[in-house]
Design a binder for these strands. Structure first.
Lengths: 154, 154
DNA sequence: GGGGCTGCCGTAGAAAATCCGGCCAAACAC
DNA sequence: GTGTTTGGCCGGATTTTCTACGGCAGCCCC
């Protein structure tokens, strides 16, 4: 159930992660099948949930979001719904690209993109620190993006 | 130069980040222009580097990569090329989805996806800890993905 | 007003995706 | 062994989508 994918399916997924808009004709040629069969496989991969959608890669620098920042967040564990309220607020915040609850030294790891330090300062004060239950935050500004959106290994 | 985008361009980018394979006809209808003009704008956005490509979203669970892990890495600052060698090795490692050099308490933040804890243990030993100059690592396993691939706010 | 420029549009030919029917080989029942 | 079924694959026809081209309207500068 977790993996009834054959070699061809995996190659299709690998290629589509790099070039999500490749024509079925070209994809077919690269995997050695006919365009028809390739289309059938792709449609099946979508229907069965392996491919959940397609997205354009937008250059953050070009649209004025030059600063990438990670924030570690610690919450007060007083009331049980603090986590839910925090998660709900994070989902509403457009500056937040990712947020994960982790096991270890802190509670949430937040990935955010903003224009510059001034914008981050505003985000920190207006959004993060104004949320109820936030006890402590640690900010790590990214100086160099070594690897950014690597494909899933298949 | 950083932002000569009008309101329509921003809407196009916002839509394409959510549905990268939308037909120009449908995109045109949503932004209130003709398909031709919409196509011209999209091509311009690609040529000028705002859109750098397209990618399929693949469900990690479905392809057997159920465990998301962040790792903080500290390096020995003995020789000046330690950072370069680390970065080069990371770029070659398929398990690593992201890696950023940060300012603060550690040097690199690594985002990796693996099948399970046993696979992560292998990655940590065979890849990360076997790299020259790695002095310390701190592992944070993700328990819940609150937000995963949020679009850039436009 | 004239000329050039920009952004927009409609049409038409090219390309791509999709639908449909048929082929072939492996699996299976008897 | 033989007939049947099933699943994966393919080619051709239809429909949809993309794209190249020409035209139109507003704007600016001279």
């Amino acid at each position: 159930m977790t993996t009834d994918l054959d070699r061809i399916d995996r190659r299709i997924l690998a290629i589509l992660q790099v070039d999500g808009r490749i024509a079925a004709v070209d994809l077919a040629e690269r995997i050695g099948l006919s365009p028809t069969t390739t289309g059938e496989r792709l449609r099946r991969l979508q229907k069965e949930g392996y491919v959940t959608g397609f997205a354009a890669r937008v250059d953050p620098q070009r649209v004025g979001l030059g600063l990438l920042v990670f924030v570690e967040v610690l919450l007060d564990k007083t009331t049980p719904d603090v986590f839910d309220r925090f998660a709900a607020a994070i989902r509403r915040a457009p500056e937040v690209l990712e947020c994960h609850m982790v096991a270890g030294g802190f509670d949430y790891l937040v990935k955010t993109r903003v224009a510059d330090m001034a914008a981050y300062r505003r985000f920190l004060g207006d959004v993060l620190l104004s949320l109820p239950g936030v006890r402590e935050t640690r900010t790590y500004a990214v100086m160099e993006e070594v690897k950014n959106d690597g494909p899933l290994p298949l």
